[in-house]
């Protein structure tokens, strides 16, 4: 009896520090932000309960809708490109069988470098007047682009940079999925005389679906709260053309110090992230085999 108590006691003692830390640094701030989203801070710094006023304000706030649209555009554009390119790259890597360690290091380098460094590097490459990208375009007779400085093209440009950075990551996840497929299905397809493309569309890709959804979940979490790269390269500009919800919420809180409204924006964004994860997880169980 006393032994089982001491067992439980020691278990509790070992997990206590992490539980205390989680409560203090994660759970408390989490609920505090939700509480704050129902308050308004006056100019004198006093906090006052205002009910759902912050959420009502959101509905008629053009900047909010702008942020939501940009978040969605950036999300879908990047996710689709990364899944397509990542799957293609994974199939190439899978066929190559043996991968020297140096090749693997090469492919992990984009997504292990800080997003901030990726931003610095692409700022220089995509500079409208002196950048290497425009030099390459013009030497092929194509018109130069303003890239990140163009309100119309900044979102696709950010999506391209993110795709460059994260395609190898998606590829390595999909590669893991490919390697875990039972070889017997391929052998059966080969015996039946199925062509390579037929095998790919009818057998490999359907079997890969759960892995693809897993990759989509992991990327969705990052893509919906897209921040670092934007803050480093454009800070949401030009003319708010890359002001995602996360950027808008951050600026509302830390540049305009509207803590209540910023909290409401952050809560909304979190609901979107958790909602996307839940929906995709449902999808994953639906396509599991």
């Amino acid at each position: 009896m006393s032994k089982s108590i001491s067992l439980r006691g020691q278990m509790a003692a070992m997990s206590a520090p992490s539980v205390i830390f989680t409560v203090g640094m994660i759970a408390f701030p989490f609920f505090y932000t939700i509480w704050l989203s129902f308050q308004t801070m006056s100019a004198t710094g006093t906090i006052r309960y205002t009910g759902a006023a912050n959420y009502v304000r959101m509905v008629s706030d053009d900047q909010f809708w702008n942020g939501l649209t940009i978040t969605a555009a950036l999300y879908f554009l990047s996710l689709v490109m990364q899944l397509i390119c990542g799957t293609a790259l994974a199939l190439l890597l899978f066929r190559a069988k043996k991968l020297p360690g140096i090749v693997r290091s090469l492919f992990i380098s984009p997504f292990m470098m800080p997003p901030v460094v990726a931003g610095m590097m692409w700022l220089v490459i995509l500079d409208p007047s002196l950048g290497a990208a425009n030099y390459i375009l013009t030497s092929f007779g194509l018109p130069p682009s303003e890239w990140l400085a163009s309100p119309g093209f900044v979102v696709p440009t950010l999506a391209l940079i993110d795709t460059w950075q994260w395609t190898p990551y998606v590829a390595l996840i999909v590669l893991g999925g490919l390697q875990s497929l039972p070889p017997s299905v391929y052998e059966a397809a080969e015996i039946d005389g199925a062509s390579k493309f037929k095998t790919l569309y009818r057998i490999t890709l359907p079997l890969l679906l759960p892995t693809l959804v897993t990759a989509a979940v992991l990327r969705s979490v990052d893509l919906l709260r897209f921040f670092d790269l934007i803050y480093i390269t454009t800070q949401g500009g030009p003319a708010n053309a890359s002001s995602t919800l996360n950027i808008y919420g951050f600026r509302t809180g830390f540049e305009f110090f509207q803590l209540g409204y910023a909290s409401a924006l952050m809560v909304t964004l979190s609901v979107i992230v958790f909602g996307a994860v839940l929906v995709l997880n449902r999808l994953r169980t639906a396509v599991a085999w």
Binding site: P29, F30, G249, F250, G253, M266, F274, V277
Partner: peptide, 13 residues
């Protein structure tokens, strides 16, 4: 939750 929520959610508190 900490891994999924936007960092900005915790930053204000």
């Amino acid at each position: 939750v900490a891994r999924m929520a936007p960092g900005t959610l915790f930053l204000l508190p």
